[in-house]
């Protein structure tokens, strides 16, 4: 568990073994570029952004991402994955500060 709120979504909600489903990871993160001025203090807000994301399904890494500060605040990462039996889908993300966090859900195909 990280300090930030995050969410993993699978679409459709009900899926079968072998089905290719949409998987999205969202995290509440400011994605500061280091180029934005704070409205009150007029000082630059230091850069702070998610710099990598990794999807691991049943212990196997299926997708990794290098991420830079140009992604929007509260970023969303959407791709597909092939359902291959029940197991855990874990999303690990690291931030430019070095902090590592993870979020996981159970994959439970029906039929």
């Amino acid at each position: 568990m990280g300090k930030r709120k995050s969410l993993i979504k699978i679409k459709p909600k009900k899926y079968k073994d072998g089905e290719v489903v949409k998987v999205s990871f969202m995290v509440m993160h400011p994605m500061e570029t280091g180029m934005r001025k704070d409205k009150e203090t007029k000082k630059l807000v230091p850069a702070e952004y998610v710099n990598s994301v990794k999807f691991t399904y049943k212990g196997k890494v299926i997708t990794t991402m290098n991420v830079w500060e140009s992604l929007s605040t509260n970023p969303v990462f959407t791709t597909y994955m092939k359902i291959d039996g029940a197991g855990e889908l874990k999303v690990t993300y690291t931030e430019s500060t070095g902090e590592v966090s993870e979020k996981s859900i159970k994959i439970k195909p029906k039929g």
């Binding site: 997708t63 991402m65 140009s70 929007s72 959407t78 597909y80």
Partner: peptide, 24 residues
């Protein structure tokens, strides 16, 4: 100024080659 937004490394386990996000 940094043109790089994201680089997504896929595998056959993705089943379909698609990536969607939002950028500034």
């Amino acid at each position: 100024s940094n043109s790089r937004c994201v680089s997504v490394h896929l595998t056959p386990a993705n089943g379909k080659a698609m990536f969607a996000t939002r950028i500034k």
